[in-house]
Lab assay of single mutants.
Amino acid sequence: MAAGGDHGSPDSYRSPLASRYASPEMCFVFSDRYKFRTWRQLWLWLAEAEQTLGLPITDEQIQEMKSNLENIDFKMAAEEEKRLRHDVMAHVHTFGHCCPKAAGIIHLGATSCYVGDNTDLIILRNALDLLLPKLARVISRLADFAKERASLPTLGFTHFQPAQLTTVGKRCCLWIQDLCMDLQNLKRVRDDLRFRGVKGTTGTQASFLQLFEGDDHKVEQLDKMVTEKAGFKRAFIITGQTYTRKVDIEVLSVLASLGASVHKICTDIRLLANLKEMEEPFEKQQIGSSAMPYKRNPMRSERCCSLARHLMTLVMDPLQTASVQWFERTLDDSANRRICLAEAFLTADTILNTLQNISEGLVVYPKVIERRIRQELPFMATENIIMAMVKAGGSRQDCHEKIRVLSQQAASVVKQEGGDNDLIERIQVDAYFSPIHSQLDHLLDPSSFTGRASQQVQRFLEEEVYPLLKPYESVMKVKAELCL
């Protein structure tokens, strides 16, 4: 049975990233139509530049190519590739079939990587351009969430054990800070992308030097003109047959890092959902379990974690691919890159769409948070109580021993009897502590235990987050809708 299948058929496997999760716009960027249309555009740009620099290419040939950029006979191309065992030459023939007058000058002087690699770089750039505003929107939604809850005390956790208090907004800023680093890295790697350009079979530009009869300047002009037509500021000066596969490492490393950030955020949300302090959106008709109707599973956060793990592992592909590119190139890269580049971007696209949807509907339960604080705060307040007693004339050592005994009794009630923490009640009825009984409410005010959390939130948002989001103001209103 021949390899390949009808990918629109229910009898043929289709990647869930495309069929179930990723956005239509990201799927289109990695589609065959987008790819092969870009090949034709690159052939047109090459012909236009070659004509401008004096090669015998007519206006009629150029116009014929322009008129057929979208006229792609995919069936013919597939048949040609089956016959020739070469995808680029299959599309040269297919393009030439609908451009008979231009057929002889299509791909003039070029090698397969002229269309293959340059198209990949265009796709990487455009895919990054799709991700950047999506990530900015996630940051914006979380920034709104953090600002609104900047002063809401909550129990902090280290080692997932109760620690000092923080605020809900401050905790959210930990998430935002990681995503801001990801946004900066995505922008950097996007701006650092260079075009492969017009380089020939081993990167020496020998074929173009021959076409222009040894004119170095025209060869350099050709490279520059096509690079500018493709919208790049610069091209690699040095290439082998391909652009260095280190570029793929750079791009997928940034995406993998984004995956790590999203995994951490969504894990926190899942843990908070278990504590009943916070939940992701839950639709009115949504079913959490087929057997347990009360369940409210954090399905979206779980999906993000599941896909983020996949995204983090994909960076190993370009690392290994770059390491086995012998001399000017081997074909070890080809099949692998067809999979890992598309999957990385479709996965990143999915987790950003999902995280935006989550961040637009996060639900906080202040009463649950308050109750958990009441359970733990008495123990945390013991040092403040000791200091207040010393100020009232008591002995630190005597007070410490009193607190120690009462704390152990209260802990026994919590752990052995399943009761509430009654340390404060014990202190309130103990005559030894009568000098500070009137101060206990103040000493137990949760806001006095959150330090500068709310001020940190305000400063972080104003100095770091809002300036970073400013270039994306025009796209901030787009909502994230999930079908599944």
Rank of each mutant, 00 (worst) to 15 (best):
residue 227 T to C: 13
residue 201 T to Y: 00
residue 483 C to S: 13
residue 381 A to W: 04
residue 320 Q to M: 11
residue 58 T to C: 09
residue 322 A to N: 06
residue 30 F to S: 01
residue 262 V to N: 05
residue 224 K to W: 09
residue 190 R to A: 11
residue 114 Y to T: 07
residue 38 T to Q: 06
residue 70 E to D: 13
residue 83 R to Q: 12
residue 268 D to V: 02
residue 374 R to Y: 06
residue 65 M to A: 14
residue 361 G to C: 15
residue 269 I to W: 14
residue 321 T to V: 13
residue 180 C to Y: 05
residue 188 R to G: 08
residue 335 A to D: 00
residue 178 D to A: 05
residue 102 A to G: 08
residue 343 E to V: 04
residue 27 C to Y: 12
residue 35 K to E: 07
residue 54 G to S: 12
residue 88 V to D: 00
residue 199 K to T: 06
residue 401 E to K: 14
residue 121 L to W: 01
residue 447 S to I: 13
residue 42 L to K: 04
residue 427 I to D: 01
residue 346 L to G: 08
residue 285 Q to D: 12
residue 448 S to H: 14
residue 424 I to T: 12
residue 394 G to I: 06
residue 41 Q to M: 15
residue 339 I to Y: 05
residue 219 V to T: 08
residue 312 M to Q: 08
residue 74 F to V: 15
residue 236 F to Y: 10
residue 239 T to Y: 01
residue 314 L to K: 08
residue 318 P to N: 01
residue 372 R to D: 02
residue 110 A to Y: 00
residue 72 I to W: 12
residue 169 G to F: 01
residue 484 L to N: 15
residue 144 D to H: 13
residue 16 P to S: 15
residue 425 E to R: 13
residue 101 K to L: 15
residue 109 G to W: 00
residue 69 L to R: 06
residue 68 N to R: 09
residue 201 T to K: 02
residue 314 L to P: 03
residue 258 L to Q: 08
residue 218 K to G: 10
residue 32 D to E: 14
residue 20 R to P: 00
residue 22 A to L: 09
residue 428 Q to A: 15
residue 331 L to G: 04
residue 484 L to E: 13
residue 447 S to R: 12
residue 281 P to T: 12
residue 68 N to L: 05
residue 148 E to G: 11
residue 385 I to M: 07
residue 45 W to P: 02
residue 405 V to M: 13
residue 309 R to H: 13
residue 145 F to W: 10
residue 240 G to E: 02
residue 397 Q to E: 06
residue 258 L to A: 13
residue 319 L to Q: 03
residue 158 T to D: 00
residue 329 R to L: 03
residue 235 A to I: 09
residue 255 L to I: 14
residue 52 T to M: 08
residue 196 R to N: 06
residue 374 R to H: 06
residue 188 R to T: 10
residue 381 A to D: 08
residue 429 V to H: 15
residue 7 H to Y: 12
residue 364 V to T: 05
residue 412 S to C: 11
residue 48 E to V: 06
residue 476 M to Y: 15
residue 18 A to W: 14
residue 237 I to K: 09
residue 207 S to V: 12
residue 252 L to R: 02
residue 384 N to R: 07
residue 52 T to I: 09
residue 159 H to A: 00
residue 336 N to G: 13
residue 349 D to N: 08
residue 205 Q to D: 02
residue 278 M to I: 13
residue 186 L to Q: 07
residue 105 I to S: 15
residue 404 R to Q: 09
residue 329 R to E: 00
residue 32 D to H: 15
residue 434 S to E: 14
residue 171 R to P: 04
residue 447 S to P: 14
residue 388 A to F: 02
residue 377 L to M: 02
residue 117 D to R: 00
residue 428 Q to L: 15
residue 278 M to H: 03
residue 216 D to M: 07
residue 130 L to D: 05
residue 478 V to H: 07
residue 36 F to C: 15
residue 283 E to Y: 05
residue 153 P to I: 10
residue 45 W to D: 14
residue 433 F to Y: 08
residue 404 R to A: 09
residue 166 T to G: 09
residue 26 M to I: 07
residue 64 E to I: 12
residue 295 K to I: 01
residue 157 F to G: 04
residue 77 A to S: 11
residue 167 T to L: 00
residue 412 S to F: 15
residue 61 Q to S: 08
residue 261 S to K: 01
residue 381 A to H: 10
residue 454 S to F: 13
residue 134 K to C: 10
residue 473 E to P: 15
residue 459 R to L: 10
residue 174 L to I: 09
residue 93 H to P: 01
residue 379 F to W: 06
residue 297 N to S: 01
residue 98 C to V: 11
residue 207 S to F: 05
residue 313 T to I: 08
residue 398 D to T: 12
residue 420 D to A: 03
residue 152 L to E: 09
residue 97 H to T: 08
residue 47 A to T: 06
residue 212 F to C: 10
residue 304 C to W: 02
residue 366 P to M: 03
residue 440 L to V: 12
residue 133 P to H: 13
residue 425 E to W: 13
residue 37 R to Q: 15
residue 52 T to S: 11
residue 148 E to C: 11
residue 258 L to C: 10
residue 343 E to L: 04
residue 203 G to V: 01
residue 315 V to Y: 09
residue 217 H to E: 10
residue 83 R to K: 08
residue 441 D to A: 11
residue 94 T to E: 12
residue 91 H to E: 08
residue 106 I to L: 07
residue 304 C to N: 15
residue 24 P to A: 11
residue 227 T to D: 01
residue 193 L to G: 06
residue 279 E to F: 06
residue 156 G to V: 01
residue 129 D to I: 13
residue 48 E to C: 06
residue 127 A to T: 06
residue 388 A to C: 08
residue 156 G to D: 01
residue 374 R to C: 06
residue 232 F to E: 02
residue 261 S to L: 02
residue 309 R to P: 01
residue 193 L to R: 03
residue 273 A to L: 07
residue 196 R to G: 09
residue 151 S to R: 11
residue 146 A to Q: 01
residue 98 C to H: 10
residue 479 K to P: 15
residue 108 L to H: 09
residue 253 S to V: 12
residue 437 H to A: 11
residue 274 N to R: 03
residue 19 S to Q: 13
residue 78 A to M: 11
residue 449 F to I: 03
residue 31 S to F: 00
residue 471 P to G: 14
residue 222 L to I: 06
residue 440 L to Y: 02
residue 146 A to P: 01
residue 399 C to K: 03
residue 279 E to V: 06
residue 26 M to P: 01
residue 259 G to T: 04
residue 15 S to F: 14
residue 387 M to L: 10
residue 250 E to D: 11
residue 117 D to A: 00
residue 433 F to A: 05
residue 438 S to L: 13
residue 371 R to M: 03
residue 17 L to T: 12
residue 43 W to Q: 07
residue 472 Y to N: 15
residue 301 S to Q: 04
residue 429 V to D: 12
residue 110 A to Q: 02
residue 91 H to R: 05
residue 161 Q to P: 00
residue 438 S to P: 11
residue 241 Q to Y: 00
residue 212 F to P: 04
residue 348 A to F: 03
residue 227 T to W: 05
residue 312 M to V: 07
residue 383 E to P: 02
residue 56 P to F: 07
residue 161 Q to M: 03
residue 279 E to R: 01
residue 289 S to P: 00
